[in-house]
Design a protein around this nucleic acid. Structure first.
Lengths: 211, 211
DNA sequence: TGTACATCAGTGAACGCGCGTTCACTGATGTAC
DNA sequence: TGTACATCAGTGAACGCGCGTTCACTGATGTAC
């Protein structure tokens, strides 16, 4: 990474391993992730990772944590320009979520592959919690509730937003909608998310002049 | 299965292997599925499955096919009592979908784990197609379109129904909502699905007397 | 500035494991006569 | 009904493979004096 001519000591093997893991993931999928493969890709002996990660699960959990942090950043940056409490704001959040999943499908899958992760990994747990707080906040701005999880209807709105967005992202990256997209898949995805959220969360939308 | 005292020839090893695979799946999860493990559970040598399935992927694809057929049956039977074109009908369909996922979480996951399956497996492909046709039919009954996938708005309704239901099922069996359910999880799930679908598909719902 | 030494991080061989696959075999079944 | 024989379905040993883990080692770095 740094000087290309690596000496005996790597310098930042920890970061290099995480990067190698992500590359393996993107190229070969979640199933193919092994410590030896990651070490191989990082150009290091297969025993070296033990100095930085106690297990494959620990390494992948760190990767998942970073992914959740990036997901949260993607959502926040996408909806930064919209006013909280508007349908446009929810749409933007969903666009960020789905854009992340599309850009990093294997990483997105890893984030929910609990059997490959360490459930006690603090950074991953916190990052997931923070990311999942975003739809709650977004719906709170819409309904005016301080905690929309308190009563059934706003809670259903939060679950609807999250389920709809997550389900669409999952099915999309699985290729279930491939036959529906026209030539311009990006545009189709963008327009479809707009329609999905607008039809499920019309209450905050500006009423059209007439039908 | 038949006479308990098995002779050298099994009788119906093919079916026994599928059943053993399902048991392995339910008990140990998708990751743990191996031909040797399935053979072991079926009480047969590890070379025996080769007589019935050309590969692990072929066996799992057959299992996934059966699962898709059962999913379709679950949905159909759940919404058989409701009039197509009503919100109640959509709710019942979603209840069937989610009930299947809850009752068979590992099997449900396998159905979407494409890297473990054979993409050319005819029965699985057909079964998946048939199951996924159900939301299209349900929405068609609602909107009156013969093919709701033809134009954007009804298409969005189909995608919304499927994404919402699928996303909720996924997140639910992952345990993401565990902290929200009260003592009676079944009741919570049932009521939540009702709310989710009713708030996303209110157009066909009988208008309440007053707010 | 130079030397001794502790510590750290990576190496490479070795371990045991479970996997899928192959193969000669063998027990059971069904069919021809 | 009885015998010969082909076919089928399961056995068990063997193969090579990649995995995670361990361990004695060694090269590089940093610190004490």
């Amino acid at each position: 990474m740094n000087t290309e001519a690596r000496s005996y000591h790597h310098g930042d093997l920890r970061a290099a391993l995480l990067q190698a893991a992500q590359a393996e993931l993107a190229e070969k999928g979640v199933e193919a992730l092994t410590l030896r493969g990651i070490a191989r890709r990082a150009g290091v002996s297969h025993a070296a990772p033990a100095n930085h990660f106690s297990s494959l699960a620990a390494l992948l959990s760190e990767l998942a944590a970073i992914a959740f942090e990036r997901l949260a950043t993607a959502i926040r940056s996408e909806c930064a320009d919209e006013t909280p409490g508007t349908t446009a704001h929810l749409i933007a959040c969903a666009q960020g979520y789905v854009a992340f999943a599309r850009a990093n499908p294997a990483l997105f899958r890893l984030m929910f592959r609990h059997e490959r992760l360490d459930p006690m990994h603090a950074r991953a747990v916190n990052a997931a919690r923070d990311a999942f707080a975003l739809p709650v906040t977004a719906v709170a701005a819409l309904t005016g509730d301080t905690d929309p999880m308190d009563s059934p209807a706003p809670q259903a709105a939060v679950i609807a937003l999250w389920s709809l967005t997550h389900g669409f992202a999952e099915l999309l990256i699985q290729g279930q909608f491939d036959h529906l997209t026209g030539d311009d898949r990006d545009a189709w995805v963008h327009a479809t998310i707009h329609r999905l959220i607008a039809r499920s969360f019309p209450e905050a939308e500006e009423r059209k002049p007439d039908a």
